[in-house]
Design a protein around this nucleic acid. Sequence first.
DNA 1: CGAGCGATTCGC
DNA 2: CGAATCGCTCGG
Length: 203
Amino acid sequence: MLNLNILPQGFYLEDDVVLISKKLLGKIIVTAIDNEVTYSRIVETEAYNGSKDKACHAYLHLNTPRTRVMFKEGGRSYVYLCYGLHHLFNIVTSGENNPNAVLIRAVEPILGLEVMKLRRNQVKKQVNLTNGPGKLASALGISRELNDVKLYEAGSPIWIGEEECDHEFEIIETTRVGVEYAEEDALLPWRFYIKNNPYISKK
DNA sequence: CGAGCGATTCGC
DNA sequence: CGAATCGCTCGG
């Protein structure tokens, strides 16, 4: 398959979550869940800038049972239930007590398409497997029990790698989806995706 | 302890 | 465009 090197924890520890959001594009998510392995390429991300960002769950250092993991050191998963129905997969970044996170909004399937299709209730069009944050969590087998997983350890059920030969692509920057409640912060260009990739989520 | 709501998806 | 669906947060 792909020749992958696992991203070390240091990759996630910078303060600048916007920069990390862009650097995560093109990286590979590997899941080994319920004895099924999937590989998929990150093609769309959004940055959530901790205590200073009205769109972030940890705005004003809101530290609750749900947001607790965002206050830990970067490189862990933050998975939560959205609208009572969908699990959303985030990557915690930056140092302790700097509650930044990157929402993974879309991935391109590489390996394990059969199990993804099963988990997605046999959707007809392949593009609908993973072109949205709730869809990809479902397809990859990620649910709330996989909150606070260390993504920099190869033995984890979820980890992130990069290919030895990197691919060229152009990054589009635009506003984030579904955060109108965040007032002026909703206007920040903190959504990033790979130009022309077919798996980009719908606005 | 209950009201209000959400970083979405799907089907009508 | 509206329903589905439930855990989290907050106020009383």
